[in-house]
């Protein structure tokens, strides 16, 4: 059983935190992952910084460009993940854009990610049709879970396709937006309920616009948990001590 699968069997109200590798400092990837585990999060999602992150709002764009200025590259990220994996059993999701995979070489990318201890992948601009045709076998053979996104505009047939094609969990985007819009969660309850009623194969995590305890709790009413990204990245630089910032942020969500 994969780490992701066993987590969903064991736990409810799963908190998955996204952060960009190499932000604010190159070495912070490992530090942040360790602190998140200590703070009690259930899963971590590590973003591979990209020059042109189309699905991301200003906060993640900013963290990505700083990380790139810090010299972050895929091999460094893989070695950091290897270090993280030595001390934790938390599921690790790697998020990035399709051009990064293509340039690295897709096969090499999947093998390397799996070897370092990555459990799942989120590639927002990889169309599911291309995935099924070209990559699914390789990804599954490498032991990785590919996670697709659904949105309020996704029709029922396509939701089923995306659910069938995903492993681990299905990513429910809260509203039509790039990452980091906090207004996103309002008035979405009917949509969340509709998805819950579909009784899909995968457990659900809600993401985009989850920023605080209130929005996290709302998400947990309809799904197995939620993903927080931009709000966490903002919090990283809130006070002078990054460890304290992390602990306080997670505590405020969990309390």
């Amino acid at each position: 059983m994969s780490r992701i699968e066993s987590l969903f069997r064991k736990k409810k109200n799963i908190l998955n935190i996204y952060f960009t590798a190499g932000f604010p400092k190159p070495d912070d990837t490992v530090l942040i992952a360790n602190e998140l585990e200590k703070a009690g999060v259930d899963m971590i999602e590590i973003g591979m910084p990209f020059s042109d992150p189309l699905a991301d709002g200003p906060v993640i764009q900013h963290s990505s460009s700083i990380a790139l200025q810090n010299g972050m590259g895929l091999d460094l990220i893989f070695s950091q993940i290897k270090t993280i994996r030595k001390t934790t059993q938390l599921p690790i999701i790697l998020m990035g854009y399709v051009n990064q995979l293509m340039r690295y070489g897709e096969d090499a990318f999947f093998d390397k990610a799996a070897a370092c201890g990555v459990d799942g992948l989120i590639i927002p601009d990889l169309p599911v049709e291309i995935y099924l045709e070209k990559y699914q076998q390789k990804v599954e053979k490498a032991g990785l879970d590919m996670i697709f996104l659904i949105t309020p505009q996704t029709d029922e047939a396509r939701i089923k396709l995306l659910d069938e094609s995903s492993r681990g969990f299905l990513y429910v985007v809260s509203s039509a937006s790039t990452t980091g819009k906090t207004a996103a969660m309002q008035h979405q309850e009917a949509y969340f309920e509709r998805i819950r009623q579909m009784k899909l194969k995968n457990p659900l995590l809600i993401g985009f616009g989850i920023s605080d305890k209130k929005s996290f709790d709302t998400a947990c009413q309809y799904a197995s948990g939620a993903i927080i990204g931009s709000a966490f990245i903002k919090a990283l630089e809130k006070g002078p001590e990054i460890r304290k910032n992390i602990q306080q942020f997670v505590k405020a969500i969990r309390d």
Partner: peptide, 11 residues
């Protein structure tokens, strides 16, 4: 070519 777009743009 093709359409390598986030799911949000798919519809």
């Amino acid at each position: 070519g093709g359409a390598f777009i986030p799911e949000l743009l798919y519809p």
